[in-house]
Amino acid sequence: MIPLFKFKIKGHSMEPTLKNGDIVLVNRLAYLLAKPHMGDIIAIKREKYSIIKRIKVITREKIFVVGDNKKDSLDSRKLGFVNRKKIIGKVIYILTNNA
């Protein structure tokens, strides 16, 4: 079982880092031994879909995430803290850049 996911970015809230259509590689085991760090870009599981955000604040159990495009991003500023268990993995590589 490969511990990697390939995600296609849909939307603009992570611009300019990630653009609509970019494909990124997510390491599911990134936080198995290491702790999340402020500034990491992560994939998070929500009810029926996944979202991509950057970690802004870390507490013992929760994280506060924001989009790089702060003008057009619905994130922890409105949704609140996210449980760490919801983290799918860490974005480790941009496979295709849609720039």
Binding site: K10, G11, M14, V24, S50, K53, L74, L95
Partner: peptide
Amino acid sequence: IRSILIKILPTKNAYAHCDIPC
């Protein structure tokens, strides 16, 4: 390696729009 990964891994969508999606 990059092209192999692009081919073998299934693609999922990750929303970065209004993130709901709205």
